[in-house]
Design a protein around this nucleic acid. Structure first.
Lengths: 220, 220
DNA sequence: ATTTCGAAACTTGTATACAAGATTGGGTTT
DNA sequence: AAACCCAATCTTGTATACAAGTTTCGAAAT
């Protein structure tokens, strides 16, 4: 099946992978030939991608894969760190006993991240598990709705993160911080949470790593 | 001019006003006759409204004005209260001196809210100024981006708020709280902010006012 | 009276022709 | 050689015909 949803996912992934690099022109007619679909439904798909920030539409001129906007990345990181430190504190200070399933589910994810670190070439899998961990926290706190809301504006942050995480030594740090966060919840320690979450999400936004190595993908 | 943007705004407003009540069917053909525009661009508009939560699309069956989803309202209120208490604390604890313009702009808004309370029939104006005040806080803290992001998911919260604020005695309380928030910032008092913001945004979500008086507009 | 069936009349979804703005490139003018 | 202009050819935007589900409603069968 070559349904609209599949094509949308496919284009989204190609942009996230950088198979479609920032600046690439996405012409409706070219895409309609590629996917054997007429322009009308393809326009719907492009509208959606534009709404999520994956492409930029120049009226009557064309559609271009958007350049990574570090300003947007910083705003999303602020949003996420603010929200996550709040909801993690909510979990840790919750009166009723914590659900065993919640803890086990997150521990399972962390084990699989551990396994990824051993393997070569498990970067993509590690990042996917990273998302699952954070999504799990949102859902555990009853805030899955807000996770989904943030995902709708993730085109810049997600590409930033993938490039940023190419620095391999970071993976171990991330995993360790995940363990710390989870232990804060289970052991009801509120006090370290703010610093922990801020360090986990905000630490590296200021490093010049991206500007030095991937300037051609960045919005000027 | 009957551009697409105008029609979008118009439909959005009619839904927010409850001129178009939850459950109303929005047929593409009917709308295309009303606005003298063909179905293709109208579909774009409906897609946008659907994305923002104003309408619900039943595939191959039709488009219906969405019922107010109190769950979505609660989630947005949690998001806003969490974010706003953080960014207001950021403003209040900022090292550099506060910009005079920022303070004056917000004070001007509060004066106009004061004026609205005197008049009859200035409900709509009061609510608009309420938005301007909160938007002003976001922008002052350098977070206008996040304000706009939240606005994209405001279909339920905005209708909730308009109905909720019909309780007239609330307006004075709101204005007083706005003044308190602003004074916390200018006088650098961090400590009361959390409670103040939570009270301001979350206080009334639990009251049964809407369920009793406007059950026919609510999602079941 | 009740159920069942099916055609007609709806709905949105897709393909395609045409409109109209934007760009490009070559030939003319200066 | 440089500037200009206009036509050809891109692009997206719009209108419309047609496809394909869904519902409705009445007639026929039980």
């Amino acid at each position: 099946m070559n349904g609209k949803a599949d094509i949308l996912h496919r284009l989204r992934n190609e942009i996230l992978n950088l198979e479609l690099k920032p600046g690439t022109i996405l012409s409706e007619t070219v895409l309609s030939e590629r996917f054997q679909l007429s322009r009308t439904p393809l326009r719907d798909i492009l509208k959606q991608l534009a709404h999520e920030g994956y492409i930029h539409v120049y009226p009557k001129r064309g559609n271009v894969v958007s350049y990574i906007d570090l300003e947007s990345v910083e705003q999303i990181i602020y949003l996420r760190s603010t929200l996550e430190k709040e909801l993690i504190k909510n979990l840790a200070s919750q009166q009723s006993p914590l659900s065993i399933q919640g803890v086990m589910k997150l521990n399972e994810i962390l084990s699989r991240q551990e396994a990824c670190i051993q393997q070569e070439d498990a970067h993509a899998a590690f990042l996917q598990l990273d998302d699952q961990f954070h999504k799990g926290l949102f859902e555990w706190a009853g805030r899955g709705f807000l996770w989904e809301l943030i995902q709708q504006s993730n085109a810049h942050y997600e590409r930033y993160r993938r490039l940023h995480m190419l620095q391999k030594e970071k993976l171990k740090v991330i995993l360790a911080e995940h363990r710390s966060i989870l232990s804060c919840i289970t052991e009801r320690r509120i006090e370290p949470i703010d610093e922990l979450v801020i360090h986990h999400l905000r630490e590296d936004i200021h490093t010049p790593y991206l500007r030095e190595n991937f300037a051609e993908y960045l919005k000027t």
